[in-house]
Structure formats: structure tokens, C-alpha cells
Amino acid sequence: MIVLIIIGYSLLALFELIPFYHQKHWREFWVNAGFGFCSFTIAVLLSFDVNIPSPSEPIKNMVMFVIRKLV
């Protein structure tokens, strides 16, 4: 699993990042690298079954809180 993820992301880097580097589109390069790093991290975490906190619970609490305040 983890091997597949690494292969996948290196392929992505090969086809996405390297062209930006060659064309000297630095902004694109860094943004893409940043997003890529994020998603890579999450993918690795997911593959190790790490529980990533979901935002839906806090949103729910917040919405409920606001509603209760209003009503």
C-alpha cells in the first residue's frame, strides 16, 4: 500500500512538478509542491490507519451552538 502511494506520488511529481520547474513557473511549482506534500502526508497517514480528525463534529457543535443562541 505505502509502496503504491510512494510510486503514485513520484509519478505525479514527475509529470506535474518537473515541467513547472523547467518552465520556471515558480509560483505554480511551490503551490503544487505544497498541496502535493499535504496530500501525500494524508495519504501516508491514511494508509497507516491513523485517525485523522474530521471537521464535521466541530462544525456540528458550532452550528448547534449558534442555533441555540438564536432560538
Binding site: 510510486i7 503514485g8 509529470f15
Partner: peptide, 18 residues
């Protein structure tokens, strides 16, 4: 286009294994 082709092929292999 080539990019997607390769990506799709990769995913195929991925999926085939799993």
C-alpha cells in the same frame, strides 16, 4: 493527455493488485 494516460495505467495496476 500523456500524463493522464500514465496516471490511469498506474491506477489500473494499483487496482488490479488490490
Amino acid at each position: 493527455m500523456k500524463k493522464f494516460l500514465l496516471l490511469t495505467i498506474f491506477l489500473f495496476i494499483n487496482v488490479m493488485i488490490l
